[in-house]
Design a protein around this nucleic acid. Structure first.
Length: 475
RNA sequence: GCGGGUAUCGUCCAACGGUUAGGACACCAGUUUGUGGCACUGGGAAUGAGGGUUCGAUUCCCUCUACUCGCCCCA
């Protein structure tokens, strides 16, 4: 038994789920004085055995839903003609500031921004589109036949207060289309989003759509809005009073009761669109009706990024209590590319929140993708067999037989226990005798019967047994 | 950034202010050494950190940290 002091020192280091890492410390602590141990523990305490706030591990047990989402989003991207693109997680900060815009919450308070050793101001991407638009311009994709459809998945970062369904690191599946202004693309993108969600087994969804116009008509509308809110200034919350100057459109979706009341009778952007924007929106709605996508027009939907023009939309999913939350959103951004220095390129894009899709799939017990499990276990006994088993393992794989093993274990008993727990149908046993004879024992785990076959016949024999067994599908 | 709640083995729970901090599940080993499931035996494994009150704190108080729920915002 360790004396009390070292044990305490070790304990301090241990923290949750860190037994193994802590064990060596415990051992060495025995040898040193308690004073030293305490000092060591103090240093060790600095190591937080948890990820930074708002970030989490996606454990093996979580992966089936993630795999399903990765597969479906990528398959659908392919079917709609999207090409995969991966851009850096880190970009120069001003790329985001310029595209997303000052006055937005994302830029003003939610961006991970810092300086490199070389003095560059960089930021973790808070969304995909800015980096993708940058790559589009930089690599001259403008010469490619239009439209150019690009697909990405990966983490994005927002320095936000975490809560249910909101993380500082979360994952998005992102779709962008460059070089086409026809509203049928808007509709097609919404259709894609709908089909992804449906394919994942999430059925109770609805789209919220709105048009916030182009820079021309929005400027007029914004003036109208400001003068309206100016007349009701007293009734607005502190935040919204500030928004009057910075981002008046956002007052429309303020959740404060008093603001919502004022906003309810505010002029709506859809009533003040220029002829071009009006036509665009009208056609979009016609296409959506044709598609039979569930949608409602939400005149107060404005979205938190300032580069949007014309169409904006979100996908919402409901739960039993009638509480709804957003699974994704997007919109058109016809002027982002030229604002960033490229030639004028109308574009539209949207992102799905993968973490939220997982949460929603869990809630509705949606089907998940399960990797094929090994149906064969390879057990070894004795030094010679142990050596041979590595080669045999590879041999099985080359012949399409996925095998599990527990080579580190000595006794046959414990290996069979593992085999049983894994639920394999066949265990291959190689002992000293078999290793010398170039044979393997094939044990049927269901009936318990076994036979010895020569190495050369092994693969076929195993395949035969597996073929005859009824394959249990894992949902 | 602002409120509320929570913090005990890997997980889920227990412990009138006094227990060697207990149990279940999981994990590891063994039940005569080359054969799984069941059973039995054994083992490792925790009071988030720091102060205070007290003879004595897992328990009461304070601070910090983390998590969590809501607001804000968003995916």
């Amino acid at each position: 038994m360790a004396s009390k002091a070292p044990k305490k020192a070790a304990k301090a280091v241990v923290k949750k789920g860190a037994k193994r890492q802590a064990a060596p410390v415990k051992k060495s602590a025995k040898k040193v004085s308690s004073k030293q141990a305490k000092a060591a523990a103090k240093v060790e305490e600095e190591i937080m055995l948890q990820p930074p706030r708002g970030m989490r591990d996606l454990l093996p047990g979580d992966q089936s839903y993630w795999n399903q989402i990765r597969r479906v989003t990528a398959r659908m991207a392919h079917e709609y003609g999207f090409l995969r693109i991966d851009t850096p997680i880190l970009e120069y900060a001003n790329l985001f500031v310029r595209s997303i815009g000052e006055g937005t919450d994302i830029i003003d308070k939610e961006m991970y921004i810092f300086s490199t050793k070389g003095g560059d101001k960089v930021a973790l991407r808070p969304e995909f589109t800015a980096g993708i638009a940058r790559a589009y311009i930089q690599h001259g994709m403008t010469v490619l036949p239009k439209p150019i459809k690009l697909f990405s998945t990966g983490p994005v970062y927002r320095y936000d207060r975490p809560q249910e369904g909101r993380y500082r690191e979360h994952f998005q599946a992102n779709y962008d289309i460059f070089g086409e202004q026809d509203p049928i693309l808007d509709a097609q993108l919404i259709q894609l989003a709908h089909r992804v969600v449906i394919a994942l087994g999430i059925k109770n969804v609805q789209f919220q759509v709105n048009s916030i116009g182009c820079p021309k008509c929005r400027a007029d509308y914004q003036n109208l809005l400001v003068s309206y809110f100016e007349s009701k200034r007293q009734k607005l919350c502190q935040n919204c009073k500030k928004r009057m100057e910075t981002n008046p459109l956002r007052i429309l979706d303020c959740k404060e009761d008093k603001c919502a009341q004022v906003a309810a009778s505010a002029p709506q952007s859809v009533d003040h669109l220029c002829p071009e924007c009006r036509t665009h929106f009208k056609h979009l709605l016609e296409y959506l009706d044709e598609l039979e996508v569930p949608y409602v027009i939400n005149p107060r939907l404005v979205r938190g990024l300032s580069y949007y023009t014309k169409t904006v939309f979100e996908i919402w999913s409901g739960d039993e209590e009638g509480h709804k939350f957003s699974l994704g959103g997007g919109g058109r951004y016809d002027h982002l590319v030229d604002e960033l220095g490229g030639e004028h390129t109308p574009a539209i894009g949207f992102a799905l929140g993968m973490d939220r899709l997982v949460a929603e799939m869990r809630r509705v017990s949606a089907k998940a993708y399960v990797e094929p499990r090994p149906r064969v276990f390879l057990a070894q006994l004795g030094d010679l067999a142990k050596k041979k088993s590595l080669r045999l393992f590879a041999e099985l794989q080359k012949n399409g037989i996925l095998a599990a093993e527990s080579f580190g274990r000595g006794s046959l008993k414990s290996q069979l226990r593992v085999a049983d727990r894994l639920g394999v149908e066949v265990t291959l046993i190689v002992g000293q005798k078999e290793a010398l004879d170039e044979t393997v024992i094939i044990k049927d785990m269901v009936s318990g019967t076994q036979e010895t076959v020569s190495n050369v016949k092994l693969v076929n024999a195993v395949k035969k047994i597996l073929k005859n067994n009824i394959v249990v599908s894992h949902e």
